[in-house]
Design a protein around this nucleic acid. Structure first.
Lengths: 148, 148
DNA sequence: GTAGTAGTTAAAGTTAACTTTAAGTCAATA
DNA sequence: TATTGACTTAAAGTTAACTTTAACTACTAC
């Protein structure tokens, strides 16, 4: 079963021009063409594209994803490299989640801050609260925001 | 206590040119200047910059962060708007964490895939494994990657 | 056979967030 | 007084990842 670029783009939820751009950049060396030059995507191409999408979500750049594609093209002799690559991505994503969790902590502090300000009608109230007056889990955050 | 742009940049771990850029874009209307035109940052400016940093980490664009800065400048009458803004950022960050968690699931599948391929010396082994042969938590992921 | 829709390329344009450069000012030290 | 180093601005340059445009070709329906 083959798909045109438009069909595959729809299946993936991206623009067809994005797939053409990826192809131009050398990320899709596996895509076949019809006699008249039209791209013919198949199901294994879909799987490839899903992995490209996944790697992109881990924060990898297209030029590095391209290198991975070429590792796959090399076959079984690049298995070790590919395993290492995914282990690296795992670490990266875990770091990103941790960073977002810290960001969320600050956002939650600010939500509390403005809830408190809203009730009082002024930000002076949360601003002037002593450390003991604020929820325990928020104290560290406020200190971080003020100090070094 | 005042800081020059270089000192504040160092304190924040960014380039001084970045702070100048933010200023040019109107994100730092609160920064004072000396008679000779040199920026003088103080501790409350640091707090502002930490919040700008936080909002940036939530995925907000500078032009939208600028709007927030102007809400702060308006004083207590914009408390409700600011609360709403942070509630929105909270939702956004939670969504991003969820997305990264899904990405991590795929990466973990790929780690297992290449560990298995490494042991066998070929990707044919994990490729040809029946659903029942792979760890339960990975089955859904493989199906997702292959199908729609 | 013609209209319409989807495919093709190459090349130029877009956007965000910086970064660099050039030319100059200012304050402190040798 | 001269040098040094950090500050200033405006403007141009950079980068990644697309997106758009123009000019063309190919398949499908009527």
């Amino acid at each position: 079963m083959f798909y045109t670029i438009g069909e595959m783009a729809k299946k993936l939820g991206v623009a067809a021009s994005t797939l053409r751009y990826y192809d131009k950049e050398g990320l899709l060396p596996f895509v076949e063409r019809s006699e008249s030059g039209i791209r013919m995507f198949n199901d294994s191409d879909y799987e490839f594209l899903k992995i490209i999408e996944c790697l992109k979500h881990t924060g990898m750049q297209l030029k590095d994803i391209k290198k991975f594609i070429y590792l796959v093209m090399e076959g079984d002799k690049s298995i070790d490299d590919r395993l290492l690559l995914f282990k690296k991505r795992k670490e990266e994503v875990e770091k990103q989640i941790e960073k977002l969790q810290n960001t969320l902590d600050v956002v939650n502090f600010k939500c509390w801050y403005y809830e408190t300000a809203k009730k009082a009608g002024t930000t002076a109230v949360p601003d002037n609260m002593k450390d003991e007056e604020l929820p325990e889990e928020l104290r560290k955050i406020r200190t971080q925001l003020k100090n070094e």
